[in-house]
């Protein structure tokens, strides 16, 4: 049975282990290769799971500082809403 790890980008545990085997053992490298954490939830659902898979599989402890930050605007916002913002600069 396939285990989905990143629901937004449809990435399975198998995909991750395959990439680790290919030498992508860094969280950021995996993220960029597989697009894990780049979906609408920005990894809030999947990143902790991915970290556990890397740590279990490689036996390596990941340092907390290397965890990716969610990037603004935290929740999806429509371009129309952003464009109609009233905070115009003066002058």
């Amino acid at each position: 049975m396939k285990k989905i790890v990143c629901r937004c980008e449809d990435i399975t545990e198998e995909d991750i282990i395959k990439a680790i085997d290919e030498g992508y053992t860094d969280l950021e490298e995996l993220r960029k290769k597989l697009r894990i954490g780049m979906g609408p939830c920005q990894g809030r659902v999947c990143i902790q799971l991915v970290i556990r898979i890397i740590e279990d599989y490689t036996g390596k402890k990941l340092s907390k500082v290397s965890y990716p930050n969610p990037r603004p605007p935290i929740i999806p916002v429509s371009l129309g809403t952003l464009a109609s913002d009233k905070h115009e600069k003066k002058g």
């Binding site: 990037r71 605007p73 999806p76 371009l79 129309g80 464009a83």
Partner: peptide, 19 residues
């Protein structure tokens, strides 16, 4: 978002995810 939606108004309804 202002410039992009002036170029392509139909993108108004599209969500921005990351920046």
């Amino acid at each position: 978002s202002k410039t992009l939606t002036s170029y392509a108004p139909c993108l108004k309804h599209v969500n921005l995810l990351r920046h």
